[in-house]
């Protein structure tokens, strides 16, 4: 367990270093802080002096070291547009994105699992065939088109749910703005989270079905039948647990896709989360904010991957975590 955590930590450090180098290069190459600070009227000599004071004429490694030290202390620079520390701006938007992603994942788990299981145990049933057809089509519909369709049908034509913004939020612990606990917030959450989950659903339905069919062919399932167990017990206790193992792994790999998808969803629904902020920052060339976003996303990424591995270890008794870590 300790070795596993150490290896994970090592890998996390490696990933974070790469990300920080990239984000530092962005800050370094794009946008001149001196220009931002003093404007056009200052003479080149004075500028150069200021550059020296700020350490901008030091070597790349020295500057990077300074940047990394700042990053460890939570200082990722100041947003040009908001005039606030970039990290604070990002973290303020974090709850919105997390709530969106959380709801989408919840919907995926609750719907994809029974659908995949049904399609696997009754492959000839008309319902499973329909399900596979829908998921084949769903796999081919890009997420932004799903979102557009949702907006068109539910917002413009039927006028059931609002299509942009986050609605009313409630504050918790002084920093977490939640939209989960009032009707307005939930109705705003409906379309974005549904779009996000519909985009992820076909992958998981197909995966669960394929894995489940594999498991159902195995000897231990046949042995379970020969013991005279009920079909329900065989499908949901014997088969499902084994099915979920590879599904969890793939779920971990999909974490990156989820981040990319949240950017698309948030842009379409103008959801005030990190992705929306990121796209805004890109179009405003707000480099500190862009690099801060990358670092925060990298951190989230490392955390989710570790979390997924831990869940995998819990589900699968044959894997000792020590021998598993990547």
């Amino acid at each position: 367990m300790l070795i596993f955590l150490l290896r994970r930590l090592l890998q996390a450090c490696f990933v974070m270093i790469i990300i920080s180098v990239i984000s530092f290069s962005i800050q370094d190459k794009l946008g001149d802080p001196v220009q931002q600070m003093v404007g056009m009227t200052v003479s080149p000599e004075e500028r150069n002096q200021l550059r020296n004071e700020l350490g901008l004429n030091d070597g790349f490694l020295v500057q990077y070291w300074r940047f990394a030290k700042g990053a460890v202390h939570g200082d990722l620079g100041t947003s040009y547009y908001y005039k606030e520390p970039a990290l604070d701006v990002i973290l303020e938007k974090l709850p919105a994105t997390l709530e969106l992603a959380f709801c989408a994942i919840l919907i995926v788990i609750l719907i994809a699992t029974p659908c995949g299981v049904l399609a696997a145990i009754k492959p000839k049933h008309i319902l499973s065939r329909l399900l596979m057809l829908i998921s084949s089509i769903g796999l081919s519909v890009p997420i932004f088109i799903v979102a557009i369709l949702m907006v068109y049908i539910f917002s413009i034509e039927l006028n059931i749910a609002p299509s942009f913004g986050r609605g009313q939020t409630t504050e918790f612990f002084g920093f977490w703005e939640s939209g989960l606990f009032n009707k307005d917030g939930l109705s705003h959450l409906l379309l974005p989270s549904l779009s996000l989950s519909i985009a992820l659903m076909p992958i998981f339905v197909r995966l669960i079905r394929a894995e489940m069919m594999d498991v159902l062919q195995s000897e231990y399932i046949r042995f379970a039948w020969s013991k005279g167990l009920s079909a329900r017990r065989i499908y949901f206790i014997h088969a499902l647990k084994n099915t979920m193992l590879p599904v969890i792994t793939v779920g971990g790999i999909q974490a990156g896709t989820l981040v990319a998808y949240t950017i698309l969803t948030e842009t379409i629904f103008q959801w005030p989360g990190m992705g929306f902020l990121f796209m805004d920052a890109v179009s405003r060339v707000d480099t500190p904010l862009v690099s801060a976003y990358l670092i925060v996303v990298g951190g989230i990424f490392v955390i989710t991957n570790t979390f997924v591995d831990l869940i995998y270890g819990l589900f699968n008794p044959t894997v000792r975590l020590a021998s598993h870590g990547l």
Binding site: I22, G252, I253, Q254, A255, G256, T257, L258, V259, A260, Y261, I263, F278, V282, V290, L294, V297, F301, N305
Partner: peptide, 13 residues
């Protein structure tokens, strides 16, 4: 492990 879409978005940005 990083999705290609994510990497593409970052680099294009």
């Amino acid at each position: 492990s990083f999705s290609n879409m994510m990497v593409a978005i970052v680099f294009l940005a």
